[in-house]
Amino acid sequence: MAGVFMISDHHFGHKSIIDFESRPFADADEMTETMIDRWNAVVGKDDKVFHLGDFSFLNREKTTAIVSRLNGYKTLILGNHDRGRSRAWWLETGFQEVSEYPIVYGGFFFLSHEPMYMNKHMPYVNIHGHIHGQKYEGNHYFNVCVEHWDYTPVAFEEIVRRVVPSEEQ
């Protein structure tokens, strides 16, 4: 059975993010190769990956080369750094699906780039990126930025295990 994974904020080709977020890489090339290796170590060819934005700062040719090396069926939810390029541009780089808006997944999870407003009375969980090493408190938010997950996509099953009380699973 194919798995489902989520991740965000790779910032491929963004050399300055190494310093901004204290990433443990010598340069952008090492960062790229490590993140590709870690993606493919957990994601199989038949798995599905939701990338929650800010994928690449590189040109179309270099971005396409990276996407083609990544396992799985890839859906991109556009992040603030992705929105300067059209949906068509991202589809041409190899993403199978591209959304300009958040996606409701499993009737219970809101997948978005930026965290969405969620109050404590809402029975939903917002899986998001954008805030990198920061983290919102509570069970209504789940940050899948690469900095929190050792630059590796997170299995949806793991997210559910962490946010849904065990008697509800």
Rank of each mutant, 00 (worst) to 15 (best):
H148K: 13
L70R: 07
G129V: 05
M1V: 11
I127V: 13
I159A: 03
D29H: 05
I103M: 11
W149P: 08
V67N: 01
S99F: 15
D150R: 08
Y105E: 09
T75M: 06
Y73S: 11
H128C: 00
F95L: 04
R85L: 15
H113Y: 13
R23Y: 13
V125A: 07
D9A: 06
H81G: 01
E167N: 05
M31A: 08
F20T: 07
E158M: 14
H132C: 01
A155E: 12
K74W: 07
G129E: 01
P165C: 08
I159R: 05
H51V: 09
H81D: 00
Y151R: 10
E137C: 07
T64Y: 14
F142V: 01
L70F: 11
H14W: 08
I159E: 04
Y105V: 11
R60C: 09
D37L: 14
A28H: 12
S22G: 11
A41H: 05
F50H: 09
R161P: 01
H10T: 10
G13L: 03
F156E: 01
Y136N: 02
P153F: 14
K135T: 14
H81T: 02
E157H: 08
V164K: 10
T75C: 12
H14I: 04
R161L: 03
V163M: 02
H113N: 03
F50S: 03
F156Y: 12
Y141K: 02
L76V: 10
Y136P: 00
T63F: 04
N40V: 13
W90C: 05
T64K: 15
N71Q: 07
G79K: 02
E147D: 06
N143W: 00
G106V: 13
I77T: 06
R60S: 13
G94E: 09
L70P: 05
D9C: 07
E158N: 15
V125S: 06
F108A: 13
E61C: 00
F109H: 10
N143R: 01
T32R: 15
H10A: 07
K135P: 03
R83Q: 10
S16I: 14
K135I: 12
R162T: 12
H132V: 00
V125K: 06
P102E: 10
K74I: 08
I18Y: 15
